[in-house]
Design a protein around this nucleic acid. Structure first.
Lengths: 216, 216
DNA sequence: GGATGTGAAGTCGTTCACAGCT
DNA sequence: AGCTGTGAACGACTTCACATCC
């Protein structure tokens, strides 16, 4: 079955909400509850979920543990996925909230940097075990030994294509690109852009366009 | 005129590419060139641009400086916008590449933190002038004095709604939310989610669904 | 009653084919 | 010849109205 990107994004949102509810010990929910918490309509929630069979019970609602597990299974998030970050030596600027990763079925396994001055150090955090910063030329080797599933590329726009090429050579098929440039990859590899600049540009436009006619 | 979110996102991409070309001294481009560099089709580029009148010249193409300026004007990016980040004491994890901001018509004017232990320090970077980290209860005052246009909220999911409420009280109408939870705001305020977890979930699904049938 | 599930209608976005300008 | 601009066809997504089940 082919599921569109927008549906996957919503399922991901639902799942994060449901996981939270599950941890609170809640057992039952409804499409209108999920809808309200995720900022969409109830019909849309039902349509999304109904694609995968009878996940709910008519007249009752959805059982949270079942639904949560069901969505994770649909999304393929049943095993922990391995992430590497390639980017600014200024490690903090990596666009990641570690805590959220650990919450979300992902685990950070490697850090790389293009500036050699930044490498051969290690980073420690109270949430995460210590991770070494490696030079980019060790990517091939580590990609295999650490079974990296996803590379987050956070380099300068001008370096992005070159770094992405190396990631591809290392056989890492999933790439998240934090810069506002498009990176070409062979078939079978996927790049997703997560770009602040773009989202902010969008926000600014929306503010200005609705800011004019503010009255009722 | 009403422009959809998807169109704005593409215009933003085009603009980043055009800005880069302009800095290289290039004068002329075409819809197929932009399309290739931004990963979309040429017709779509033309459709997007044609919405705003004759931005190109038939038989010739688009003049880069004019087009670049034109898009910036459409997006309302002619003046530098003021950004504040509210988030993890572990400041590095703020999801921002400072350099990109300075490239992109944005300027960071304030940092806040919910944990008081983290505040009253300041952060310095080789790219950015030193910025103080302030406690959240000073947000109202600073929002006005520093004319903050956008707040980037990078707190724990459980705190998000509460922090967003404070941002709203401070009169900051544009909010970027880095967590995978939905935050409610009054009319006139806008929240955009930029969520890694969601994008990664999407990436994983795509990899698995196309990974099965990999052969030709 | 109160919730899910679903065909049909409606809306929005993309592609096609081609007209028009240089 | 080469490239932009555009009405029409096409497809994807969302909403509506209602049948269905606990």
């Amino acid at each position: 079955m082919n599921i569109s990107e927008t549906v996957i994004n919503r399922l991901s949102m639902y799942m994060h909400y449901l996981t939270e509810q599950e941890e609170r010990g809640e057992k039952l929910t409804s499409s209108s509850d999920i809808a309200q918490e995720c900022g969409v309509t109830a019909v849309l929630v039902r349509k999304d979920l109904a694609r995968f069979g009878r996940l709910g019970v008519k007249g009752i609602g959805y059982y949270i543990p079942d639904l949560c597990q069901g969505i994770k299974s649909i999304l393929g998030l049943e095993s922990r996925l391995h992430i590497a970050i390639i980017g600014r030596s200024d490690l903090g600027l990596c666009g990641i909230s570690f805590k959220e990763f650990l919450d979300s079925n992902y685990v950070l396994v490697a850090l790389f940097d293009t500036e050699t001055a930044a490498t051969d150090r290690s980073v420690t955090s109270d949430i995460l075990p210590s991770v070494d910063i490696l030079p980019l030329n060790r990517l091939d080797e580590v990609a295999q030994s650490k079974k990296i599933d996803i590379a987050i590329v956070n380099t300068m726009p001008s370096e992005v294509q070159q770094v992405v090429d190396q990631v591809v050579k290392g056989g890492i098929r999933g790439i998240i690109n934090l810069s506002p440039v498009y990176a070409r990859v062979p078939k079978g590899y996927i790049v997703k852009n997560v770009c602040f600049a773009t989202e902010q540009d969008n926000l600014i436009y929306l503010l200005q366009s609705q800011g004019i006619g503010d009255g009722p």
